[in-house]
Structure formats: C-alpha cells, structure tokens
C-alpha cells in the first residue's frame, strides 16, 4: 500500500487531492449560502467574481497545466462568448439562454479555427500566436464601433430568468455557484479520464505519445475547444454579472491575469486555479482600497510566489503537509 500511494502522490498528487472535492464541495455550499444570506451586496459580488474567475482559470489550466500549451490569449474565448451573447441578445433580441448557447458555440468554433493556426507552433511561439489572435479580436472590438460599441462596450444585457428572476445578488451567486460546481466536476472528471492522462503524457513527452500512436494534434485541438467552452461560460457569467461587456474582456491584460491565477494557484492541479482566482480577486480589490501603491504590492506578491512557491500555492501546501507528516512519523 505504502509504495503505491507514494508513487501516486509523487506523480501528480491526486492521492492527497482526492478528499478535496468532497470537502471542498461541502465548504463551498456553506460559504455560498452564508454569503448569499448574510453578506452585503459588495462582498457577495466579490465571491461571485471569485467563482467566475475560478471557472475561467481552471479552463486555462487544462491547457497550461495539463497539456503544456502556454496560452496568453485565453481572453479571446471569454470575450468572444460574452460579445456574441450580448450582440445576439441586444441586436437580434434573442432570448438570453439561446444567445448564451450560441455564444458558447462561437467560443468553441473560434477555438477550432484559431488552433488550426496556433497548433502549428509550439512553446513560446504558441504563446505569441495565441496572444496575436486574441489581439485581432480585441482590435475589432475597439475599432468596429458601430457593432461593438467600441471602447464604451455593450451595456444593458439583463440577467436571465430561470423560473425565478436571477436579479438579486444573492440568488445570482447561488446560480453562479451551481454553474461553478458543475463546471468543476466536468473538468475534474475530464482530467482524471484516460483523455486527461493522455494530455499529461503530451505535456511530459509529446514525441513518445506520438510513437505510442496517439494523434497528439487532435487531442490538443479537442482540449482547446473544451477550454474555450468553459472560458466562454465564465465570459457569459461575467457579462450577466455586470450587464456589461467591453474590449477589456478580450485584452492581453485579462489573459495575463488569468495566467497569473493559474500559476499562483499551481498549474496542473485544477483546484489550484480556484485558490489563484480567490487570491487574485482579493488582491485586486482589497489591496487597492488600502493603498495607492497597490500595483507594487500585487507585483511583490507574484514575485514572492515565484521565488518561494514556484510550483504554485497548492503544491507548496502539499509539500509542507507531507514533510510535517513525515516528521511526525
């Protein structure tokens, strides 16, 4: 038993992470209900943002952490889904749910088309071409004012109706938490499926996977489309959160932010991204209320993480836990 467990833990640490979904799920339910019931609107808003960003960051982790595809253009799918949904709902007056479904389809098709180009490249070139492709969309959003509203964005998308109106901050949070739970479960199942292990194989040694007969390109394309789907889910939730989408939903800044969430949390662990998202929202909103020099503080936090927890917070915690357990034995 011992050695097997060791091997698993030293592999990618699912050994320790296994109880997490259960515990994490329970904690989430309690937190969400408490927040929805007791906290004022602003705190509710922050928790909602954390959950949305967590979906977004986990979707990027599928690429960065599991497949070894360092994307710096992940905002493309977040923004594409949000813009498509907003435009369909506003200009064609489609019902929200239909617009959202088509918005997600746009993100997935966008990922398919973009990756026909992007997957020709690897590593740093992949990073740059994903950045460039997302910049093309951003540039369209900024300059094609008649359609996109340009810099001023598209306001006025009402929150959807689902039996009851999802208007109130508390109700909305519960809805977002549900979407979050389902998304997490789907992504978690995915990375633990044979498909997920194949992705890790590609990350570790692409040539060997090819030799073993895997169609590496097809795996990469498929995971990119899945990642785009969940990025799109996050984009549409964010659109509804503020009834607003603007070019920053397609920006490099957002792509860099979500990459930071993944890296801070621990790439390749899925749940690390949740931590990264929580930390990001806190840093972004709380530190900037404390000090005018918040950018400095945020930067310093990233530097400290890079130096002292280079593999990310979750891995750092796991190593501490393991070493303390080792000592107590």
């Amino acid at each position: 038993m011992g050695p097997i467990r060791m091997a698993r833990a030293s592999g990618w640490g699912e050994g320790l992470l296994r109880p997490m979904p259960v515990a994490g799920g329970a904690i989430l339910v309690v937190v969400v209900l408490a927040v929805a019931a007791f906290l004022p609107a602003y705190q509710t808003e922050l928790v909602t943002q954390m959950l949305i960003y967590a979906i977004f960051a986990m979707s990027l982790d599928l690429l960065v952490g599991y497949t070894g595809l360092p994307s710096l253009g992940h905002s493309a799918y977040f923004g594409l889904a949000a813009y498509a949904t907003a435009l369909l709902a506003l200009k064609l007056a489609l019902p929200f749910w239909l617009a959202a479904a088509l918005g997600l389809a746009c993100a997935v098709i966008g990922a398919f088309l973009f990756n026909l180009l992007a997957l020709r490249t690897a590593r740093a070139y992949y990073l740059m071409i994903t950045l460039a492709l997302s910049q093309v969309l951003w540039s369209l959003a900024v300059s094609w004012t008649d359609v996109t509203g340009g810099d001023n964005g598209l306001p006025g998308i009402a929150r959807p109706v689902l039996g009851i109106r999802l208007d109130g901050a508390g109700v909305w949070l519960v809805f977002v938490a549900l979407v979050f739970a389902v998304s997490t479960l789907v992504m978690w199942t995915l990375v633990r499926s044979p498909f997920g292990y194949a992705l890790r194989g590609i990350r570790e040694n692409e040539e060997r996977m090819k030799a073993l007969g895997y169609d590496v390109w097809r795996y990469k394309l498929l995971v990119s489309m899945v990642a785009a789907f969940f990025a799109g889910v996050a984009g549409i939730l964010f659109l509804s959160l503020n009834s607003f989408v603007g070019p920053q939903a397609l920006s490099i800044a957002l792509s860099a932010q979500v990459l930071l969430m993944v890296l801070v949390g621990a790439a390749g662990t899925l749940f690390g991204s949740i931590f990264g998202a929580v930390a990001f929202v806190l840093l972004q909103n709380v530190v900037s209320s404390w000090t005018e020099r918040w950018l400095f503080v945020v930067g310093a936090v990233y530097v400290l993480f890079a130096l002292f927890a280079p593999a990310g917070a979750l891995v750092w915690v796991r190593e501490r836990l393991r070493s303390s357990r080792g000592r107590s034995r």
């Binding site: 950018l295 400095f296 930067g299 936090v301 990233y302 530097v303 130096l307 593999a311």
Partner: peptide
C-alpha cells in the same frame, strides 16, 4: 533559482513588470 522553469519565470517577470511600473 528558477533556471529552466518557464512558468515560474513568467510569474516572476510579470510581477517585476508591475513593481517597476509602479515605482
């Protein structure tokens, strides 16, 4: 300290970008 670790290197240099911009 982060030799050949591309992801933490990106994290570090992004952090430095913020710090230097603010300074």
């Amino acid at each position: 300290r982060l030799h050949k670790q591309e992801l933490p290197q990106s994290l570090l240099t992004l952090g430095l970008l913020f710090i230097i911009a603010d300074v």
